[in-house]
């Protein structure tokens, strides 16, 4: 972005709006297809204009931004890794984002492996043979940063789109 360019919509949690006031009849819920319609149409345009790799980077960054706001507004500081995971599992399930499970959580060595079943972004998508959830990668990276204060790289190693039934994310801490 050019240095002197004017921002029109810098993200803040307020931008999610007052749903009670704004949707007194329809409420906060909508069909998942609509979410995916928006996400994959965005992705299509971005990928067309900037290429698949850049689209992945943009989605990773967007996921990180969303994850930071999500952590600050819905998770908050937690006493230990167990409480952090419990809280995260609870909020992710409550909001219909996915079912989080932990395979490994070795903070001492900076390694965490989690799976997300019934993932908001990809569960049920056609088998393309390509991992799709780069937004989730950034999202999870931000959550780990929020909890530990350390930078993590998160990589999706299994995805519904590669024929798997659950998305597996491997995270490792970046050396300072």
């Amino acid at each position: 972005m050019p240095e002197n360019a004017t921002r029109k919509y810098k993200f803040s949690w307020d931008m999610l709006g007052d749903l009670k006031a704004g949707r007194p009849n329809l409420g906060p819920m909508m069909r998942l297809e609509v979410y995916r319609l928006m996400q994959y149409s965005f992705r299509d345009v971005i990928e067309t204009r900037h290429g698949a790799d850049e689209a992945d980077r943009i989605f990773y960054e967007a996921g990180f931004l969303a994850g930071m706001e999500f952590y600050d507004n819905l998770i908050g500081p937690q006493e230990d890794i167990n409480n952090f995971i419990k809280k995260l599992q609870s909020v992710l399930k409550e909001m219909g984002i996915g079912i989080l499970r932990v395979e490994e959580a070795d903070l001492d060595n900076g390694r965490i492996t989690v799976t997300v079943s019934e993932d908001l972004d990809c569960s049920g998508l056609p088998d393309t043979g390509l991992e799709l959830c780069t937004f989730d990668e950034g999202f999870i990276s931000a959550l780990l940063y929020g909890f530990t204060g350390k930078s993590f790289t998160v990589k999706e190693v299994d995805c519904w789109c590669t024929g798997d039934r659950t998305c597996r994310f491997a995270a490792h801490v970046n050396e300072a």
């Binding site: 079943s117 088998d127 299994d158 519904w160 590669t162 024929g163 798997d164 039934r165 659950t166 597996r168």
Partner: peptide, 8 residues
Amino acid sequence: PVAGSLKS
């Protein structure tokens, strides 16, 4: 899907 089921 076969490998995916086992991975699951």
